[in-house]
Amino acid sequence: MTQSERGRKMFIESGKKEKFPMERHGMLLLNRIFHRFLLLCLLWWVLTEGYPGSWWFGLPGVTVTTAATLGLSSRFTWHWRPLGMIRFVPFFFLQSLHGGIDVAWRALHRQTPMNPALFDFPLRLPHGPARVFLANTVSLLPGTCSADLSEECLKVHVLDGSIAIHTRLQAVEEHVAALFGLSIPPAERFEEASPHE
């Protein structure tokens, strides 16, 4: 468990019962400022393509931006888990390759075969950025496109209603949960291939 993870766990628990130790809070904040500063420096380096003279302007700019983002985003205390990211990125690449080939096959076929349907997918992820991230990911994966994110479910438009959509989306949901370090209840079994009209 890294320092920031432990810190966040304490932060979550402190809201319920325990007193939050002040020095841990300070460490956590410093840690976050440092990470963000490094990230923005990297971004500047990439945007200027490593031109050394640009740092005269870049360093003050990055400092101001760090301060601004800290002031703006105090509500969002999430970040991605490295382990979840290592598992998510190859999964995403393979799936989006599959998705592109799927669409290309249908588009180039003489008859453009498809069997579109609308599905309601019950969400297990908690409210917040993880849900939005799931909705966006689903749009880029093979044969699915998210159409409505409501209180309890995600309405999904699928190109082929006869495939095992729920099982697939549950796998995606588990990947997103691992990415955000969230724990979700175990999957329920669904009747497959029963799109509602």
């Binding site: 989006s96 390759l97 998705g99 592109g100 799927d102 669409v103 290309a104 588009a107 498809m114 579109p116 749009s139 880029l140 093979p142 044969g143 496109c145 159409a147 438009h157 190109l159």
Partner: peptide, 13 residues
Amino acid sequence: YTRLHAVTKADNL
């Protein structure tokens, strides 16, 4: 809806 699939998936790939 199906055209959306074409735009988001094929073009991004």
